[in-house]
Amino acid sequence: MTRKPSGQRGPVDHERRDQIIAAAHEHFRLYGYKKTTVADLAKAIGLSTAYLYKFFESKKAIGEAICSLCHDTLLSDIQAIVKDNITPSEKLRKIFQSLAHNGAELFLHDRKMHDIVASAIEEKWHAAIAFDQELSSIIRNLLLEGRERGEFERKTPIDETCRAIVLSLQPIRHPALLEYNLETLDNDATMIANLVLRSLAP
């Protein structure tokens, strides 16, 4: 089923919508999300503001669509890890490293996109909430798999364990936090993953 992010209007699959998202993405990269208005976007794309509103109810809705594409890329990398023929422990370790690596890449090479993701988290956009829910679901399934294989302890309630792991990821995946530890981010991800895995040992 095709997902339509919050604030979008009209048909889900529409070539013009994709063109608007692509053009807006480039405009945000040049000028930043917060400094851009819908009128600025319309002028840059060569469309009327009224026409943009046929597809998106606000600038935030356009930002949501772009943010969702970024999150889809992150989730694609994580899903590839989950499908790999390795233990649940190694999958969890690689997820920590993947989030840290992708977060650093975004900050260093696509700062404007990094700022959009930061806005999504700060303002609790639907795209950010949906990503957190999907990440939590993936981690929960890994925990269940690890418990079934005798790799992880079973005493702690699964919801509590899952929530604690998601919270432990904050320093390496939250845009407002990871930028303060860029030089040590990879090592930090490894150390936090090691600590989490030791706590999960039976």
Results as ranks from 00 to 15, higher is better:
Leu144His: 02
Thr156Ala: 06
Ile45Phe: 08
Ile129Gln: 13
Ile62Ser: 04
Lys112Arg: 14
Asn181Gly: 09
Lys94Leu: 13
Ala104Leu: 11
Glu105Lys: 10
Glu122Ser: 05
His25Trp: 03
Phe131Ile: 00
His27Ser: 03
His101Ile: 01
Leu47Pro: 08
Met191Asn: 14
Leu75Tyr: 04
Asn181Ala: 14
Leu41Ser: 03
Ile139Ser: 01
Lys43Leu: 10
Arg163Leu: 11
Arg198Val: 03
Thr184Asp: 15
Asp186Lys: 12
Ala201Phe: 08
Arg163Glu: 15
Glu90Asn: 10
Ala127Thr: 09
Ala164Trp: 05
Ile129Pro: 01
Lys4Phe: 14
Phe28Trp: 02
Leu52Cys: 11
Ala176Ser: 14
Thr36Trp: 00
Thr37Ala: 06
Ile81Lys: 10
Ser48Gly: 15
Leu143Glu: 04
Thr49Asp: 13
Ala80Leu: 01
His101Arg: 14
Pro88Thr: 02
Ala44Met: 01
Gly103Trp: 09
Leu178Arg: 05
Glu123Phe: 00
Leu74Met: 11
Thr156Tyr: 04
Gly146Val: 07
Ile192Trp: 14
Ser136Gly: 15
Gly7Ala: 14
Gly146Pro: 03
Asp186Tyr: 01
Thr161Met: 12
Tyr31Pro: 00
Arg140Lys: 13
Ile158Ser: 04
Asp110Pro: 05
Asp115Pro: 00
Gly46His: 01
Gly10Ser: 09
Glu90Tyr: 07
Lys60Arg: 15
Ile172Pro: 07
Ala104Glu: 15
Ile129Ser: 07
